[in-house]
C-alpha cells in the first residue's frame, strides 16, 4: 500500500511546529501503524535526516506510552485500541494520513509527536493509592470483596494512563482518568477508608495542573482504548459531593 503522510514536526518545546509531508510506499496491510512509521524513519536516517520522534514501548496496547492524533482521532480510526494496535489494513491504499501530537495545555509537546504527560503522574501522587507501607497487612482472604464490585473495580483499574481522554476533550479535562482511579479504589473495602480525602485531593490537583472542567460531552468514553465508561465519572461526582459535604478539612 502507498500513503501520503502529513506529520507534525517540532524541534523542541519552544520551537514553532509545522506539518511536513512524506510519501511512503510498499507497506504491507498486516503492518502496524508504528511499524509503518519505523519504516519511514529508516528512510529518513538513510538520507541523514532527523527521524520522527514519537513515544512507544510495549507495542501491545498496555503500557499507555504510545499516543498520536491520527486523522483527527486519538489512537486512530479503530475502536478500543491504542495506536500501537492499529494496523494499516484500516486504511485504504493511497490515503493521506494526518498525524499530530496530543494537544492539551497540560501536555506540552517535547518534540514532534512526543508530549509530556507527567501531569497524570502528579494527579496519582496526590492521592491515587491506599496509604500503606510494605508489611504488616492482613491475610489476603480476610478482606472478601463481592465478585460484582471486584469486577467493576477491575474495569476501572484497566486505565493505561495514555491521556487520549484529555486529548479528545474540548476542555482538555482529565476527568475520565481521575474517575477511573477514584472508582477503582472506592469500590474496594481497602480503598474506602480514605475515599473522601482521595477524591478531593485528586480533583484539586487536576484543576491545579491546568486540565479543564468536565462538561459531560462524553468524547472521552468514545475514544478511550480501554472502554472506561462515563459511569465512573458519575461515581466520582457522587464521591466528590459526598466528600465535600462531610469534609471537615479544607482541601
Amino acid at each position: 500500500m502507498d500513503f501520503t503522510l502529513k506529520i507534525w514536526r517540532q524541534e523542541n518545546a519552544k520551537a514553532k511546529g509545522r506539518f511536513e509531508t512524506y510519501k511512503i510506499s510498499n507497506i504491507s496491510s498486516d503492518c502496524s501503524f508504528l511499524e509503518m512509521l519505523d519504516q519511514l524513519n529508516e528512510t529518513l536516517v538513510d538520507k541523514i535526516e532527523i527521524p520522527i520522534c514519537f513515544d512507544h514501548d510495549c507495542r501491545e496496547g498496555i503500557c499507555g506510552m504510545c499516543s498520536l492524533y491520527i486523522n483527527g482521532r486519538p489512537h486512530g480510526p479503530d475502536d478500543d485500541i491504542t495506536t500501537c494496535q492499529l494496523h494499516m489494513r484500516k486504511f485504504k491504499d493511497g490515503d493521506t494520513i494526518t498525524i499530530e501530537p496530543w494537544r492539551a495545555k497540560a501536555f506540552p509537546v517535547i518534540k514532534d509527536l512526543m508530549v509530556d504527560r507527567n501531569a497524570l503522574d502528579k494527579i496519582i501522587q496526590a492521592g491515587g493509592y491506599v496509604s500503606i507501607s510494605t508489611g504488616g497487612v492482613p491475610d489476603a482472604n480476610s478482606i472478601p470483596v463481592s465478585k460484582k464490585n471486584s469486577d467493576l473495580a477491575m474495569d476501572a483499574a484497566q486505565c493505561i494512563g495514555c491521556g487520549a481522554c484529555v486529548a479528545t476533550c474540548k476542555n482538555a479535562s482529565a476527568m475520565l482518568f481521575v474517575a477511573a482511579k477514584v472508582s477503582h479504589l472506592a469500590l474496594l473495602p481497602q480503598g474506602k477508608v480514605e475515599a473522601k480525602e482521595r477524591v478531593l485531593r485528586m480533583v484539586r490537583k487536576m484543576d491545579e495542573l491546568g486540565f479543564g472542567n468536565c462538561t459531560n460531552t462524553g468524547a472521552c468514553e468514545a475514544e478511550c482504548p480501554k472502554s472506561i465508561t462515563l459511569t465512573n465519572i458519575a461515581r466520582l461526582n457522587r464521591e466528590f459531593i459526598f466528600a465535600g459535604i462531610l469534609s471537615e478539612d479544607k482541601y
Partner: peptide, 22 residues
C-alpha cells in the same frame, strides 16, 4: 504469600469467586 497480602491491601483487583474470596 506476603506478596499476595501486600497487593490485596494496596487494592490490586485480583479475580475473585462468587463468595468474595480470591
Amino acid at each position: 504469600n506476603n506478596i499476595i497480602d501486600q497487593c490485596v491491601a494496596q487494592g490490586v483487583p485480583f479475580a475473585r469467586e462468587y463468595g468474595g474470596l480470591l
